[in-house]
Amino acid sequence: MSATATETRPVVATGSRIAARFAALRAEGRGALIPFLEAYDPDRATSMEILRGMPGAGADLIEIGVPFTDPMADGPIIQLAGQRGLKAGATLGGTLEMVREFRAGDSETPVILMGYLNPILSYGAERFVADAASAGVDGLIVVDMPPEEAEVLAPHAAAAGLDIIRLVAPTTDAARLDVVLNASSGFVYYVAITGITGTRSADPAALEAAIPRIRAHTDLPICIGFGVRTPEQAGHAARVSDGAVVASALIETMSRTLDSEGRATPGTAQAMLDQVRALAAAVRAPR
């Protein structure tokens, strides 16, 4: 089933969209902007509108958070986004359905799901990977699945052509770095701060030192996330690495437009997309 779905698509086969996008950006001489949205936050229709609008606003890749009750690595902003998503009925299956609808209108922008292992295990790891690939997902970030515990998912993902994108932290020492990188594909996600999402800003000098250290160990593109908030920071991160992931700052903007019950208002999707445009402009600015 999944095979026919991808074969009928004229552009790129599932799984290679990430590599193709980074190759194109390299030719353009700039890094990627990777904005984040939480599925079903604040409701399915609004998050679908945000997802559909992101490529036009300048997203080069898109990261979609899958709501989970216990997001161990996330700060308060994304915790609340997940709670709103769950309240709006988010499930892993529903998130895949959003990607499928997005793919009907966009066959090129890579989509990465970021989430936690338990909903995947509950869905069934093998079935999930097959359904994700068929829906048009390109990569997975499974926060609480280090290389040591990846056996349950990684072989299925490799067979389906889904990249497993891994986090490298400032605390990842040289010995650990190779373990992590050997289990990575797609790109490497450098966690700019020691901490959880959305709590502090990255230190530019530390980033300029950290990226070459990782670069020496891998040919994969390296993107910077956690602590990238402003257009200026995104521009800097995309210059010193291959891309900038912006999550909490966008969710914060979006959540300010919600009413007292946490529901969307007419300006909700637009507020988030306007900020994506500002970030994209900074990432595209001449060096």
Binding site: M72, A73, L117, V143, D144, M145, P146, E148, E149, R166, L167, V168, A169, T171, T172, D173, R176, V180, V191, T194, G195
Partner: peptide, 9 residues
Amino acid sequence: RYVAETLMP
């Protein structure tokens, strides 16, 4: 050891 890479070390 199902933890984020940030906790692994």
